[in-house]
Simulated scan of single mutants.
Amino acid sequence: MRRLLAFGTFDLDRHPRARVLLEGLSSTWQVASLNRPLGFSTAERVRMLEQPWRLGGFAARLAGRWLQLAAGSLRYRGDRAPDALLVGYMGHFDVLLARLLFPRTVIALDHLIFAAGTARDRRASGRVLHLVLSALDRAALAAADVLIMDTDEHARQLRPRERRRALVVPVGAPARWYRLAQGRHGSRDADAPLSIVFFGLFTPLQGTPVIAAALRRLHDDGVAFRATLIGTGQDAERCREILEGVDEVTWVPWLEGADLAETVADHDVCLGIMGSTPKGLDVVPNKVYQGLAAGCAVVTSDTPPQRRVLGDAVDYAPPGDAAALAAVLARLSREPAARRALQVRGRARADELRGDRLVQDLDDRLRRRG
Rank of each mutant, 00 (worst) to 15 (best):
R369T: 10
L167W: 05
L4V: 02
P103A: 04
A6P: 00
S73N: 07
L112R: 05
A341Y: 08
A337K: 12
A350V: 10
W66N: 04
A181M: 13
L342H: 00
M1K: 11
R156F: 04
G24F: 01
R123Y: 07
G370W: 03
A116M: 04
F199H: 14
L362F: 02
L109Y: 09
Q290T: 05
L218P: 00
T300Q: 05
D83S: 09
L38E: 05
R368V: 07
T203L: 15
P318V: 05
L141I: 12
L141M: 13
R19P: 04
L67K: 13
V252R: 10
L100E: 08
D282V: 01
Q343S: 10
E162I: 03
G200R: 07
V46Y: 00
F198W: 14
D247F: 06
L342T: 02
L260A: 12
D247P: 05
T28V: 14
H267L: 15
R357S: 07
L131H: 08
L201W: 06
L21S: 00
V264D: 11
G272S: 09
V249A: 14
G233T: 01
G186T: 12
W53C: 01
A116W: 06
G370P: 02
G72W: 04
L215Q: 06
P16H: 11
V298P: 04
G280R: 01
L229A: 11
D268A: 03
A338C: 12
A212F: 08
P278A: 11
R345V: 03
L21W: 00
A81L: 12
R176V: 08
V87P: 00
L62M: 09
A330L: 10
